[in-house]
Every structure is written in C-alpha cells, then in structure tokens.
Nucleic acid binder design. Structure first.
Lengths: 221, 221
DNA sequence: ACCTGAACACCGTTCAAGT
DNA sequence: ACCTGAACACCGTTCAAGT
C-alpha cells in the first residue's frame, strides 16, 4: 500500500471514526517517523508526518504538543543515541573527549536535524547525566568549580558548531565572481573532501581545547 | 500613524495601483526592517514585514526572492556590521582573534537572528575578504596550506556555536525533576550570570585555539 | 519596472462527533 | 482516551491589472 509519493503507508486500511481498541500512535513511533522524514527531506510538516503514519493530522495532537512537540521528540531521538558509557571507563580527559566524539557522531548520522535542535535547553536525562559526570570529573581533576561551566560551555559550543558544519552545503565558503581571494582559493583547493576537513577540524579543535584543560588541571594540583 | 499593534507604518497614506513614480521599496530598506522585526519578535513573516513597510506582501517579490531572499538580506545586514579592519593592523594572531571577537559581537547584538543564519554558504564579499586575509596570514606564519581550512573551520565552528549560545534560552542546562545531578547543579550555581559564562567561555576557547596555532607556527619556522 | 489586490495551495491548530 | 473529519486563521507564492 503506497500513497502518491510511493511511500509506504502504515495502517492505511480504512479506519472508522472513534477511539481504536488499541492505540495506533505513540510518541516513539511519531518520533521515529519524524526523524526519518527529516533525514530524507530536511524538514517536516505535520500533514506529511501524519500521512506517513496513516493517520489524520489532528491525531498527532493526542500525543504531542504540536509542531514544537515533534521537535522535542526529535531531540529525544537524538539524545537517546548518544553513548554516555565511555564516561565511566576512561581517565577524565579521555572520557570527555570520547563523549563529545559520540555527541558529534550522532549528529553526523542525522545532519539535517542539527539546525532544528540548536536553540533549546538541554533537559534529556541521558545528556544531563553525561554533563553531571563530566562536572564531577572536572572537579576531581582539580579544576576550580567556578570554571566548570565555562569549560563545558566552550566544549559544547564547539561541538554544536562542528555539528552544524555537517549540515552545511557542500561548499561552505564560495568566492563570488569578481572577488579576488587567491590565498583562500588555494587553501580550499588544498583540502581533501569537505567531510574530511570537517572531521579533522573537529578533532584538532577538541584535542586542543582538552589539552588546555589538562594543563590547567595539572597546574592546579 | 500606527497599525493595530501600535507599530509605526511607513507611507501608509493610500496609494493607488500602478508603478509609483519613485520606487517605495529597495533591498536595503527591506533588510533593515527584517532585522528589526527579528530582533524584536524572534522571527518574521512576509505579511508582517510588508505591513511594517506599508506595502502589499506581493510587492516584496519585486526586490527579493521570497522568504529565502529575505534571509539572505539578513545575512547581508549582519555581514556588513562585521569589522575586518583589525585584520590589517595587528600581528596575525592578534588580528585573527580580533576578527572573531567582532564576528561574535555582531551576533551578540542580534542574537535572535543567529539560528536563521547557521546553514548557508558564506558568500559575502566582506566576510570572504576577511577569510582571504586570514588565509594569507596563516600562510605567512608558516602553517602548511593543507592545514589552513582545518584551522579556519575550527575557529568558525567555535564562533558559530558560541553565537548560538547567545540565542539560547536563559537556562541552557535544566536538571529535570527526579534526576540527581549534584555536581552539575553546583557548577551551575557557581557561575555568575549566564551572559558572563557565555562571554568567558568564548574568550577561553578562542585564546586556547589560537595559542595552539601559534605554537604550531613557531615550530614550523 | 514596480505597485495593488486578489487568488491559491498549504500549513498549524482546534474541536465536535464517534467509539 | 484516542481517532476521524472538517473547519479556521494564517502564510508563502503567483499573477492580472494599472501606471
């Protein structure tokens, strides 16, 4: 069973009005479908999402607070894929590096979602737990508590910015006609693929930032 | 003359159909009004923008390619406020630091625009010129050209991520009820204002990243 | 070329009716 | 409680008509 766009429609058999004996929707299914939709098309609308799920648009409102609620579900989908376990297993500096690598890796798997998740507060218990662990590790390492949020913010900002790089168009810098920029052109030509540039920029930045934290911790003890 | 929302309406005197003797709109006026609108409300719609300019919605299409075109105008407004002159006046490392400070400062003045400008290619001649100058300076400093884009990308990602921090809600991390996160709570309590945290996180990150570049340049010569 | 005025498809949200 | 079906306000885009 497919709709006009050849997309499989779940449960498209005619359903009459009234409450179904067993619920056809739940937040998990809506979240998964929304993530799929954004991965494929770069955006979503409630009607399109409902069509994929084989329900009416209004039905979504029984499970989610409108469009903003779906974005919250996208955030949950992404957060749930982050892996906080490395934080338990390594030295604090390696652990923090590993967490932010997984953070970026999840976004790399879903680049088109990134721009939708840049502005809201972090509430996900999973992610909060990861930050809790990092805060504890920084304290143990000798970093003064007044500096903890500065450091975590700098790392978070860098990770988010790097994730956005993944969502950016192929060419991040385009030299317009008539503009002379020989050094920039040469530098652009000297890079491998853009994906490679993004990856290595992230690695070098992350390592650099953590080196500095490590140095500060060492001098504090 | 005001409309229903008490907003000043420009040129609201009745204008009859047909081409006016002198154009009432131009890209500059549209861009300024759009920036104002986003600064005040956090978003814009074409009808609201047209109302502020005292014209019909459709009139905008004579100057701008729809909603996406207005976002391009916002990007131009922002780019034009960046100050590339420090790049001419200092040592390369100070110059690059100063440029990114001005980059972030412009976004700090218009935080609600940031989320709208995170995903497109940099084409602004002014910004391209700044990157050209930085590419040249990195080359002069002894950094191998294969590393230039990695370094500029890391700095750009960090600057964008830090700018997004300015657009974020007051509380960037919120510990949900029932979740235990004492170290994170203590770290959050230990910061001054969130604006202060954002500012210092940017400074510490920027300085750290550039310290590493400087060290690499020194060892390359 | 540049504006008005109106049309159109589409979206987000709400809600009565049905089980 | 949870779904359908329909309604409504609003948005982005297009276009004929007018100067």
């Amino acid at each position: 069973m497919t709709n006009g766009k050849g997309v499989k429609v779940v449960g498209a058999s005619r359903r009459r009005a009234g409450r179904p004996r067993t619920a056809v929707l739940d937040r998990q299914r809506i979240g998964e479908a929304a993530l799929e939709l954004v991965d494929e098309t770069g955006d979503f609308t409630l009607p399109e999402l409902a069509r994929r799920l084989g329900v009416q648009t209004g039905s979504l409102y029984h499970h989610v607070e409108g469009r903003a609620g779906v974005i919250e579900l996208l955030r949950e989908q992404i957060s749930d894929q982050m892996d906080p376990t490395p934080l338990q297993q390594h030295r604090w500096d390696v652990a923090i590096a590993e967490f932010f690598r997984s953070y970026r890796a999840v976004f790399a798997a879903h680049p088109r979602v990134v721009p939708m998740l840049t502005t809201t507060t972090v509430r996900s218990p999973r992610v909060i737990a990861a930050y809790e662990k990092m805060a504890a590790q920084l304290a143990d390492s000798g970093i003064p508590i007044s500096r903890t949020m500065e450091i975590l913010t700098a790392l978070e900002s860098f990770a988010i910015g790097s994730a956005l790089d993944l969502a950016a168009p192929e060419v991040m810098w385009e030299i317009p006609d008539g503009v002379d920029a020989p050094h920039l052109a040469a530098a652009l030509a000297a890079q491998e693929t853009p994906a490679d540039r993004a990856e290595r920029a992230f690695e070098v930045g992350l390592t650099t930032l953590l080196d500095a934290v490590r140095a500060e911790a060492a001098s504090a003890l």
